[in-house]
């Protein structure tokens, strides 16, 4: 087993006016290939900040972080974008999809940027959409899909290019319980069948129940 994510003493301090707000106060975390990690904790404990830093969306104030062998704290914005494109998939709480693109186009988008041929990406997109149970809805645009369906498209997009790591920030927060169950099943399935590594931040006990590893955060630290 190799480490997909390895964080050493990550700190993040925001300036809010004249006050320094400590979002992360030194986090050490290692996530192995095939892991399914659940981060829980109260609002403001630093979950989202940690995910953003792992995904290269935000820079740590101090500490070292490597994702899929890339030392993120040494990379430029463009290199980080390339790293995300090749290795990381994201699922957010809401507003996951590009509203002017159809479900299939949303799924294909990342592959298109990776340079996958038109035929190949069409095939894979349809296949993944079928896997997440959205067969026949390929040409709908996000406003024509329910919240649960939108999150499924988001998961499909996150995993379609076989990333080393999928980061999900409260993916079930806006879903009813039935839909949430379905989404968790889907992610578990992807994890067990395709070996996709998941790091999920959540309040949802149902998610924690299915996690391989449950980590709790408080005041910017893992406890």
């Amino acid at each position: 087993m190799t480490a997909v994510v390895s964080c050493t003493n990550i700190k993040k301090i925001y300036k809010q006016g004249t006050i320094d707000v400590v979002a992360l106060a030194g986090v050490d975390l290692t996530v192995e290939q095939g892991d399914f990690v659940c981060l829980s904790g109260p609002s403001g404990s630093g979950k989202t900040t940690l995910l953003n830093i792992i995904g290269g969306l935000d820079m740590p104030s101090a500490g070292e972080i490597s994702v899929a062998g890339n030392m993120l704290h040494t990379m430029s914005k463009a290199q980080l974008a390339e790293m995300r494109l090749q290795h990381v998939g994201f699922v957010f709480q809401a507003y996951n999809l590009i509203p002017v693109l159809t479900a299939q186009e949303n799924v294909e988008m990342v592959m298109q940027m990776q340079g996958v041929s038109k035929r190949e990406r069409g095939r894979r997109a349809r296949q993944v959409l079928k896997e997440v149970g959205l067969e026949g809805m390929e040409n709908r645009k996000p406003p024509e899909l329910s919240g649960g369906q939108q999150q499924r498209v988001a998961v499909a997009r996150a995993i379609v290019s076989n990333p080393k790591l999928v980061l999900a920030d409260e993916p079930t927060a806006n879903l009813d319980s039935k839909t949430a169950e379905n989404l968790i099943d889907l992610m578990r399935h992807m994890n067990s069948e395709h070996g996709v590594t998941f790091v999920i931040s959540t309040h949802d006990p149902r998610v924690m129940l299915h996690a391989k590893r449950n980590l709790k955060m408080e005041d910017g630290r893992l406890v």
Partner: peptide, 10 residues
């Protein structure tokens, strides 16, 4: 979102 998905600022 575009940036999160790995699309460059350009």
């Amino acid at each position: 979102l575009f940036q999160a998905l790995g699309l460059k600022p350009n």
